[in-house]
Design a protein around this nucleic acid. Sequence first.
DNA 1: GATGAATGAGACTTCATTCAT
DNA 2: AATGAATGAAGTCTCATTCAT
Lengths: 190, 190, 190, 190
Amino acid sequence: MTEARPQRADAIRNRGKIVSAAREQITAHGPDVGMNEIATAAGVAVGTLYRHFPTKADLVTAIVAEYVAQVADDAEAACERVAGGADATHEITAFLRRVVDVSATNHAAKAAAQTLGADLRVQADEQRAGAALATLIRAGQADGNVHPDVTVGDIYLLFSTAPIDQSPAARERWLTLVLPGLSARARMVG
Amino acid sequence: MTEARPQRADAIRNRGKIVSAAREQITAHGPDVGMNEIATAAGVAVGTLYRHFPTKADLVTAIVAEYVAQVADDAEAACERVAGGADATHEITAFLRRVVDVSATNHAAKAAAQTLGADLRVQADEQRAGAALATLIRAGQADGNVHPDVTVGDIYLLFSTAPIDQSPAARERWLTLVLPGLSARARMVG
Amino acid sequence: MTEARPQRADAIRNRGKIVSAAREQITAHGPDVGMNEIATAAGVAVGTLYRHFPTKADLVTAIVAEYVAQVADDAEAACERVAGGADATHEITAFLRRVVDVSATNHAAKAAAQTLGADLRVQADEQRAGAALATLIRAGQADGNVHPDVTVGDIYLLFSTAPIDQSPAARERWLTLVLPGLSARARMVG
Amino acid sequence: MTEARPQRADAIRNRGKIVSAAREQITAHGPDVGMNEIATAAGVAVGTLYRHFPTKADLVTAIVAEYVAQVADDAEAACERVAGGADATHEITAFLRRVVDVSATNHAAKAAAQTLGADLRVQADEQRAGAALATLIRAGQADGNVHPDVTVGDIYLLFSTAPIDQSPAARERWLTLVLPGLSARARMVG
DNA sequence: GATGAATGAGACTTCATTCAT
DNA sequence: AATGAATGAAGTCTCATTCAT
């Protein structure tokens, strides 16, 4: 509803190829890959790339936006399962595990976004994700498993820095270390 | 005893100014600040910068090395206090809090190091830090406050993901959330 | 048939302009002219220059290659004239005179090539030139005008150092002094 | 007689070391060696180098000047031997052979001089060399071995193109090819 | 709409030369 | 006089972006 754009089929296809290629290239070779490399990897010429994304920042923004949308979808699905009777704590944990995995593929893109000063307000999807997450947390707190003072911001705080460039084993261990902090049970004494 | 280098006083002073300026600039404007900007901030000409650090990678390496040395010193000091009777758990927590703070100033430098493919083997200091940390952990475990399976690697893993680019308040909250994972007490159920 | 590269017309034109401008600039201002100067002289931006020649060494190599090709063509043409009945000795002399002239425009480029460690193996053309020259020499020896022990290497030895940075008159005088050494007649006594 | 300079013994010694080192470095690593490299090779600091030679051009000029003086000495010695009855043609040939050898060590220095736009008017020594050479040529012409129209300029022209960066064997071959041109006997027909 | 050559600001680095010690 | 650290202009090369084809 933002803007009407009845694009040609191949144009839409190209957009998708470009975003995917960009994510892959940035993940593989760091946030500084050139636009030409991305274009080549996407099988298009730079000019085409720039028709879809007038700026490198726009491209990176799109990558991150796609990632946020995916997380939002995931959170909402978990929400619905909880509404349908699934265990809240289990859903939270599983969701966070998936988030860590997905983030691994988007870490470099976010770094690039920061360097480029890209505008990351993907408000719609971010709010969807936030809302779903809030629901999940409330459900967990109702079950008595999630600590009463845990907020959506806490989750962001923790998971925005997950060790996504590490091995799956390391990521799993990280979850083991981090999840207790969300638990209703005791907290370590400073 | 490694290498004799009786340098001039002003040269040493410049080296220090350069490393500080570089850390500040990189922290403030991201890992891609130009060498000219760093030199200007340090109050020297580019040539001087290059006399001290033949390569941008060398400069970044030096920044990180200094950081590692500082952490190592800190860990050893905590160790000694524990040996002198101080509370291990408290020392660990305080140490980690300080690490998070120091890391905040070095995050971008490490990112730069990675981008530049800099060689970060600062073995001596890294081993000092590791050894001291191991001692602290053992002490905490002896007290029954630190979970028996916590390792030095766990600490590295966890604190490599500290939200060092966030506000002090956020960092404090992060500690609150994360420290329970090291505690001997229960872990959240997946 | 070596590699298909149906380039754009203007790109080919630019390549030519760049090589010409580079030869001129290097000839005029020495082997150390900047790439920016060359680009400006060619009427393009540096970036264009680098698109065609990723390295200064590549550019210089191209200049020399073009020169070698030209000499090879010249030698082969002389060869064919001799095969058609022309006087071998006259053709050799005339060829060498032309070589000296052409070399004058490429001296600095070769110096630059050496400084830059450029790879000058332009084998195909070099062998063409060598073969044609060998034929010419044999014809001259058959006529009894060229000394029996003269080789292609001798010609290279002599003409690789022709006084190409001197006036045409000086070059002509130089030929007068040097050509007797190739003659079948007596050699000076050491 | 140009300027009175009662220098300290070590200063004089340094000057010699610097010129030698410069010649060696330039010969070994090309005309673009840095002043620091030369200073280091000479066992002094750059500052000292600059005290003796305010400019790189000055240094290179000094190298070439020393070379010219050496050639002049050599030519005069040959002259005296001829005056004492030695064979002129033999002395010329031997002198030229030595010149080619000495030039080999000074080629790069001369190239550097040209690049730097150094002023190579070493008039005194150049005139000494020219005068001696003229005498030698006249003696050879009197003997009937040197072609009547050969001038000092011819010798300069010819030997400015000696293949001084080639092997001794190649240089010897070059002499064999080039000396006939100075001979009184026939010249090749164009 | 797509293509890819051209653009040009700016990055890193070198090196002749100066000057405080 | 010697030393060597500092200077800064200039050089090579990269890359986001534009535009003719």
